[in-house]
């Protein structure tokens, strides 16, 4: 992990057009930027394209970066705005997991992009829940839970107020919890095919008994 001094030096040099210094910043921030793009856009190929574009934009606008702000907030802000623009333009498509072969689900197979502890069911559940939310709500959830930003930082990144952030977060959580509750209810109900099968088994048992 790079120290604060290292990062400051890289930023200063990158502002003077030093590409090697900027490469260090890309190395340090590739995971959060890619992760945000992946969660926002919902598929690895769009996420990679978006994350690369975010770094291009960051390099092009390096001179506008205010060193009093955290670099992480600045780059996440670029990533957030870019992903939202992309979703609004319709470039970022939410791909259903059913449409993909299992080995195409993760980018470049090995190593797995997600932590090994995260199983696919949970990943699918998260993707589905996030896909239910409007972009701004999804963004707030991602920044809060994946990037551990404070309300103030989220407000800065999304160019909004803290109260708007809290409200979006509340609504997003509510919508996701409702979806989870609906899932649980659906899981508790016996499926139609299961009911038919149970009925058939009951009939067979009755026939044998007679």
């Amino acid at each position: 992990m790079a120290s604060v001094d290292d990062e400051r030096l890289w930023v200063l040099r990158a502002q003077q057009g030093d590409q090697e210094a900027f490469a260090n910043l890309v190395e340090a921030y590739q995971r959060p930027v890619y992760s945000l793009a992946y969660r926002m856009l919902g598929n690895p190929s769009d996420a990679e394209d978006a994350a690369q574009e975010v770094f291009v934009r960051a390099f092009t606008h390096m001179e506008s970066y205010d060193a009093t702000r955290k670099f992480s907030s600045w780059i996440l802000s670029i990533a957030s705005h870019y992903c939202i623009d992309r979703l609004r333009r319709g470039h970022g498509r939410q791909v259903s997991l059913d449409d993909m072969e299992p080995d195409r689900w993760l980018p470049d197979t090995a190593p797995a992009p997600e932590s090994e502890a995260m199983d696919r069911d949970r990943e699918e559940q998260i993707r589905r829940l996030l896909a239910l939310l409007p972009e701004q709500h999804r963004l707030v959830i991602i920044l809060r839970y994946w990037h551990d930003l404070s309300y103030e930082e989220i407000a800065q990144v999304t160019s909004t107020t803290e109260s708007a952030v809290k409200s979006r977060l509340h609504r997003a959580r509510e919508a996701m919890a409702e979806a989870l509750a609906a899932d649980r209810e659906a899981a508790a109900l016996p499926r139609a095919e299961d009911q038919v099968l149970a009925e058939r088994n009951r009939s067979h048992a009755l026939y044998r008994a007679i």
Binding site: Y34, S35, Q52, F55, P113, M118
Partner: peptide, 19 residues
């Protein structure tokens, strides 16, 4: 329980090529 997603291998190299 969720964690950040790792970018695909050689992502940084491709990103710098694009830059």
């Amino acid at each position: 329980s969720v964690t950040l997603v790792d970018p695909p291998p050689s992502f940084a190299i491709r990103a710098m090529a694009r830059v």
